[in-house]
Amino acid sequence: MLHIVACIKQVPDTKIIKMNPKTNTMDRSSAPAILNPYDAHAVEEAVRLKNRYGGTVSVLTMGPPPAVKAIRKCIEIGADEGYMITDRAFAGADTLATSYALTKALEKIGKSRSIDLIICGKMTIDGDTGQVGPGIARRLDIPPLTSVKKVVEINKEKGYAIVHRKLEDGYEVVQSTLPCLFSVEKEINEVPYAPLPNMIRAARYQPHIWSVDDLEDVDRTLLGLKGSPTIVSKVWPPEKPKGGEMLTGTPKEQAERIISLLLERKELFRAKEELG
């Protein structure tokens, strides 16, 4: 029986977030908090592997108390257990301090039921780094497999996993010992609508909630802002482009203008013709 843990995060939906132009800060109230879209694929893959090989799927998150909602979303997808670490001591963590806190929580989860596989999303849409997953793998000293787009086989008895890792021009087939960590691409699966029984279970589900005092062997200087080597020194709005020339006239006249612009760059089209 496999024990798979998916690490997830609740994020503001950056697609619709609004900026306060006066203060250059994000108006967080303008964006709903959602389960990081990449993480939904991580949880879905964990659930599929559970259905294939049998086992348990746990999810783990670090965040403020409202992040419980993101855990419930994972229960809807089919996770069995949810764990949340929440404490002021974790606040302001960069990727290094985040991977440390999550690793401490994983060690605690692993004590009651040893972990075979950890799955993370490719990255979060608010941090956009993709660094936390590989960081966790280093701290636990297990192989990190990033850019996973397909899981070919998990063999717990023989202790290995085989996956496809996406490359810029194809993919590679990689075998790793278990336990290991995957960070998965979006294309690995499609997340279907949750079945009704899962939704009912999710609505009532209460995750395990731990503060820093519940974790063991924690070096507090490595947590949160204190444990973060990087700091944000300055934020500013991206430079606004100046804007271009708006074409006028009838659609036909506009199209003709564009075509003449293209023909001024004939060499681009000639090259293509010669290539065949």
Binding site: P12, T14, K15, I17, M19, N24, M26, I125, D126, G127, D128, P229, T230, I231, V232, S233, K234, V235, W236, P237, P238
Partner: peptide
């Protein structure tokens, strides 16, 4: 780097390490 889906630019420093 662009942050929060490109909504802001942020300058990151690593002062002590």
């Amino acid at each position: 780097r662009p942050a929060f889906g490109g909504n802001i630019m942020a300058t990151i420093l690593c002062k002590k390490d």
